[in-house]
């Protein structure tokens, strides 16, 4: 699912596509130790490093965390929901047979992504909103957004 989120986020941040190469490594690390993966400062000990640690902005762990929360939310509200279902909803183009989310549910998904971005990457609210919108895409186009 996080991979799907990455694909969608690339609309707003083309640089994010580069994370596809490291996706497997990052996701494995996330599931082994989510906190450490989200912190992103696992430089550890030793010498002869290139430089002092500076944090690269990696979105994969953030989307993994956001995805987990989205699944948790939707699986309690929509019948027949699973992680696979969410991945299909978010994939492009979305298959017709997948359950459709309500505007409120899309809004919640966007809020979760937006909050995750701001919390874990210290991203500015404007930029987080842009990426979250890109991730949620057409699904949010309800009356409130149209206005």
């Amino acid at each position: 699912m996080a991979k799907a989120l990455l694909e969608r986020a690339a609309d707003a941040e083309p640089a994010v596509t580069a994370e596809r190469r490291a996706f497997d490594v990052l996701s494995e690390a996330y599931f082994a130790d989510p906190k450490r993966a989200l912190a992103g400062n696992g430089n550890g000990g030793g010498y002869l490093k290139f430089g002092l640690p500076g944090i690269e902005e990696l979105l994969t762990p953030v989307f993994l965390a956001a995805g987990a929360e989205v699944v948790k939310y939707l699986s309690g509200r929509v019948e027949g929901f699973s992680r696979k279902t969410v991945r299909r909803i978010l994939s492009r183009p979305a298959p017709r047979e997948v359950p459709q989310l309500t505007v409120e549910q899309w809004a919640y998904v966007r809020t979760v992504v937006e909050n995750s971005l701001m919390q874990h990457t210290k991203m500015s609210p404007q930029r987080a909103e842009t990426i979250a919108s890109a991730v949620v895409g057409d699904g949010i186009a309800g009356p409130d957004r149209a206005a």
Partner: peptide, 27 residues
């Protein structure tokens, strides 16, 4: 995998040197 920086690190023994890339560098 937990180092989001774009650095690297050399280490190892003379008969088996190693270089570690931060995952941020891989990106």
């Amino acid at each position: 995998p937990y180092a989001a920086a774009h650095g690297g690190q050399a280490f190892g023994l003379p008969w088996r040197y190693r270089v570690c890339l931060d995952v941020g560098l891989l990106v």
